[in-house]
Design a protein around this nucleic acid. Sequence first.
DNA 1: CCACGCATGTAATAGGTTACATGATTTA
DNA 2: TAAATCATGTAACCTATTACATGCGTGG
Lengths: 198, 198
Amino acid sequence: MSLDNVLLMMLDQPATGYDLKSEFEAGAITFWPATPSQIYSTLDRMDERGLLESRLEASAKGPERRVYARTARGTERMREWVRSEPVLGRERLAYIAQLSGIGLLDDPRVGVDFLVQLRHWFRGRLETLAGIEAALLRGREPIEFDDASFFDWAALRMGITALDARVRCCSELLELLEEREPDPSGRGPRSSVRTADA
Amino acid sequence: MSLDNVLLMMLDQPATGYDLKSEFEAGAITFWPATPSQIYSTLDRMDERGLLESRLEASAKGPERRVYARTARGTERMREWVRSEPVLGRERLAYIAQLSGIGLLDDPRVGVDFLVQLRHWFRGRLETLAGIEAALLRGREPIEFDDASFFDWAALRMGITALDARVRCCSELLELLEEREPDPSGRGPRSSVRTADA
DNA sequence: CCACGCATGTAATAGGTTACATGATTTA
DNA sequence: TAAATCATGTAACCTATTACATGCGTGG
């Protein structure tokens, strides 16, 4: 759907499929997942449709690299998408579905585990984003942004804020669960995981 | 992918495609989108695969209704999914992509508009979830939940918490933008939208 | 020379989106 | 009798996922 648009945005400078793939793997694009094969085939499709153009370049090491650049049509398409209404309400938050399904299981201990894992993951992602933000802010007054970086930063802020809230939500829910289930088994394997992360 | 699992969870009581569709439309399932046609075809597929079974029932009004129920295999499949590792990092947050792309446009005013629209939508969703939470809590001590409802509530909390944080993030970003761009045009159409929602 | 990282993909399958189709019953 | 709502889908197309394939160059 709009991996197209995400790639068009990322191609503000010409780049190869491998470059883009690496950006995804570095965790810089936290709002959209993509596998290498999807990236390559999407780039190919957009090339055919005239949204991108490509040329082969010799590489210092390894095989030839195909470098993609936006065409005028591609740029136009991307701008239209950015300017259009915000695309909302189509998020697939599988982990929330799983969380709400834990009540359908027999073993309530699963819930503690699950929330601990969630919180752990959110914290990791939070650190990644905080690192990116620090790099972006380095040497600038936060308010003196040129317009381009301001919205990169805004997107980061939106992610960081929500992650931070989710981490706190996990902790509050865990407190409630621990009141209800004061870990009668002493310390099982689960209990040690919990303390390790708390 | 896992609309299957979401539907299996919702089918804790037997229901028709129409019932499920209505639940989605009522906004109760905020973490997963689904259109009627996708619901019907997914139910059909799961029926063929033995995860669901169905029977036709006469309806008081309108045509016959096909009522679906989980089979033992369906229940097993759903439980496995809920107990498996939390599915994280596959969210497609198009609006964040759009937000970060605003810097690639010429007109920075778009950013104000965009954030106002985002905030408006988040607030609406927040109200919906708050209503569902109020209905769930009605007449109960928040801590005396039976296990099933506790995790329904936990999922709601997770959504509400993140939405609340996002609303505040929008407001903070808008403040920064207004410092930078003190609306030199007096009040255009955009300015009135902004005040209407602020 | 072997393993690893660079760099590029293909093929098969599953899943999601959009637009359209159909017919019954209730309410105005 | 017309419109709205109940209730069910089909067909065509596009996208995404998974698993696999290939071949170069570098360092141990």
